[in-house]
Amino acid sequence: MKHIFGVIVILIVSVITGVAAKAMWYDTWSPTKAAPPQKMAWVKQQTSDAIAKTGADRNQPGTSGDASEKVTDNDAEVSDSSGATDASLTADAAVSNDEPEFSGGFPVAKLDMVVDHLINGTAHFVDAREEYEFDDGHLKGAHLLPSSAIYENIENLMAVGVLPGPGKPIIVYCGGGSCEASHNVAKVMAEFDYQNIYIYVNGWEEVMAEPDRFAGQTE
């Protein structure tokens, strides 16, 4: 009986410690505070440049009719909490003439879009799978950000030029299925002010199933 009492005491003390740690320690942390100030200043500069450039591009004539007007209305509008930019989403939807699909609050990247960006090098690809899966094969130029160690590795993304803000689209993919790992990675990236994030829900499973479409685009 006294052992059960001991177990209960340990559980109560653990809960109290956890609640105290959350209130006094964990809640004081924020992703933007965690990044080195110098780097953040540089990131902000890059971000404003990207916003200005995106605005200029969108105001150019010749982009597809109604869609371009929609885009202009949403110009430089920062995304919803999920980190996806409405404007770029509308633009992509206009290109594909499809209603945008969402998964876990993020727009879904379809096969055609993924292949287009991959061939033209117009998007950053982030692999949310584990390192051993990445080593077995991944999309060309993809950056490894395993969902089990996102916070440890997110600065590596900045180091290779994948910066927060509404720059190039970022397509996060994982093994396929429900693609939970890529949703987790996308959520954390959004915490760090990354925008324009897409989820390639079908992920590596589809890459393997469509070898012709991805010929020469994997490594």
Binding site: W29, S148, A149, I150, Y151, N184
Partner: peptide, 13 residues
């Protein structure tokens, strides 16, 4: 703070 957030992701997986 960071480890707990990462662990929450791992639990979610």
């Amino acid at each position: 703070p960071v480890n707990a957030r990462q662990f929450a992701v791992q639990i979610g997986n």
